[in-house]
Amino acid sequence: MSEPILAVTGVEQRFGPFRALGPVDLVLHRGERLGIIGPNGSGKTTLINCISGTLRPQQGRVVFDGVDVTDAPPHRRARMGLSRSFQIPKPFTGMTVLENLLVPIDQICPSGDAEDRAFAVLESVGLLRRADHEAAGLSQLELRKLELARALVVQPKVLVADEAMAGLSEGEIDDVLAILTHLSATGIAVIMIEHIMHAVMRFSTRIVCLETGRVIADAAPEAVAADPLVQKVYFGEQTRH
């Protein structure tokens, strides 16, 4: 297999004396569909923050596309093709939904047809009608879609979706899964963090399970689902869905 698009080795993130993550090793191959599961507070978002650069881990290295980016600021990683959405939506308020998508296009892959590309992505997530609306006026659900749209409009090499489907209806989950599957078919590697089990099981080619900041399983979906340890820490206490 070719060199992985993303390699995390020995990453450890502490908040004061509290170790929220690690040490964690993780490899993501090109075009792969990786699901990350784990109970609340197990360090999934923290791991994504270390990968995207919004946190600087105390230990370990992050190598993206063959380049050690551990000390690179988030914008440089984004420009290299690492895209993420936020679990708690962070819309660019004070501008329209369309402009929200133009920001990453401006910075990462400016082109003359930027607006057309933005419109196409807005359509695919069902936000086309909201294109000219102020982002602050969107519903919580629409904000999640905007998060996803803003992350994938730049055709990244790796897309990390942090609970992009929370609160969506079954039909909308299917829509988002179709979008992500299509993206993956074009060679984009996708990391999906999700509590919605059937979605992550259906989508992923491999699943990693985190528990108190450590990887406790890393295998094919069926194998992870059958893992007694995973069942104990995760399915056992999972009452949310």
Binding site: S52, F92, Q107
Partner: peptide, 25 residues
């Protein structure tokens, strides 16, 4: 210009702007 858009983005959320490729600092 794109600069104005990037400024508005960082005003709304510096973290999100960074992750959208804006060199905020």
């Amino acid at each position: 210009s794109a600069m104005g858009r990037a400024l508005r983005a960082l005003k709304a959320s510096e973290v999100a702007a960074e992750c959208a490729g804006v060199p905020t600092f």
